[in-house]
Amino acid sequence: MKVDLFDFELPPERIALRPAEPRDAARLLVLDGAGTRDLHVGDLPAQLRRGDLLVFNDTRVIPAQLEGVRGAAKIGATLHKREGPRRWRAFVRNAKRLRDGDMIDFGNGVAAVASDRAEDGSFALTFAGEEPVELLLDRAGRMPLPPYIAARRQADARDAEDYQTMFATEKGAVAAPTAALHFTPALIAALAEAGIGQATLTLHVGAGTFLPVKVDDTAEHRMHAEWGRIDTATADRLNAVRAAGGRVIAVGTTSLRLIESASGEDGVIRPFEGDTAIFITPGYRFRGVDGLMTNFHLPRSTLFMLVSALMGRERMRAAYAHAIANGYRFYSYGDASLLLP
């Protein structure tokens, strides 16, 4: 499909620079068989059915953005995928000043050797020393805000909390599973009282999620791989919910992509551990999920293509036009949509 089919105009003022307070006060655009409704995230329990199950991603964002020097050259690095105990694949700013074998000094006693430049311009960074890399990043790194926020303001102390979900336990993501940012303990309690369950899986979101689609046709785009895991107990639970007539509703496109990666043609969700580079566009037949809660995405992005596959391209274009006209806030810190095909 032509990428132009997924383009739309978004006024810059619609991009949220901070999350709603409290988190569940964010707006919620509901699209289902009854039409389109303007609500708030706190209204979610009444939009679901007893026996439904929400699936959250429990990945935790690490301070994966680094600023350093190689000689006199300033080098920026954003880690996006772990390749070993001390080795990460990273997108590099000012990469033309970097060669295989160069040492980058990130300050605070943190340094890494660059190697294995890939076709996409990324490098492997192998961190020096014996301290766990997580400790090195806590010392020298900062929260990797999405480019469309970082271009307008610096990350600050608030982001260390704002850019983590209440489910974040498994360190390894360089971007938050942002749909889950809207949830609070009070909302989870209300969902439980309404008979709506919850489960977690892990997908370590990579910085590749923000990369623009540079080709003209979706068939030519290649996704970056991300590591994920669904254990046996979780897979069994998801299958049991659907067998009993409940719906499996992914909270965030990261949860959806991992569930779909673990689902067979028979609709059975199986345990999964490894990389996925699944790319979902219109025409895809969903096998493991029955709905999605997600934020509002970039024009021409793989994520807008995904929601178009779930709900239909024309319906999503109309929904986004409605959201823009009615003042919804977009992207990572923005409002949410509940999509129930």
Rank of each mutant, 00 (worst) to 15 (best):
V3A: 11
D4C: 10
L5M: 14
F8N: 10
L10D: 04
L10P: 08
E13A: 10
I15S: 07
E21H: 12
R27V: 05
L28C: 07
D32G: 14
T36D: 04
R37W: 09
R37H: 02
R37C: 05
R37T: 04
D38T: 11
L39C: 13
L39D: 10
L48H: 05
L48I: 06
N57A: 04
T59A: 02
I62S: 02
A64D: 01
L66A: 06
L66P: 00
R70C: 15
A73N: 10
A73S: 12
A77N: 08
A77W: 02
E83Y: 04
R86Y: 14
A90V: 08
N94F: 04
A95R: 11
A95P: 14
K96V: 14
L98S: 05
G101N: 12
D102T: 04
M103E: 15
I104V: 15
F106W: 13
A111E: 05
V113Y: 07
G121Q: 11
S122P: 13
F123V: 03
E130M: 14
E131V: 15
E134M: 12
E134R: 15
L136D: 02
D138Y: 10
R158D: 08
R158A: 15
R158I: 01
A160I: 11
A173F: 00
A175D: 06
A192P: 02
G195Q: 14
G197A: 07
H204L: 12
H221V: 09
R222A: 11
M223T: 03
A225M: 05
T234D: 00
A235I: 05
L238Q: 02
N239T: 12
V241I: 11
G245Q: 12
G246W: 01
G246P: 01
V248I: 11
V248A: 00
V248K: 00
T254H: 00
L258A: 08
E260A: 03
A262F: 04
E265C: 07
E265M: 15
D266Y: 11
A277K: 12
I278A: 01
T281S: 08
R285W: 12
R285C: 14
G288Y: 06
D290T: 14
G291C: 10
M311I: 08
G312L: 06
R313H: 13
R317M: 15
R317H: 14
Y320T: 13
Y328H: 13
S332T: 02
Y333K: 00
Y333I: 00
S337F: 06
L338E: 02
L338P: 01
L339F: 05
L340A: 13
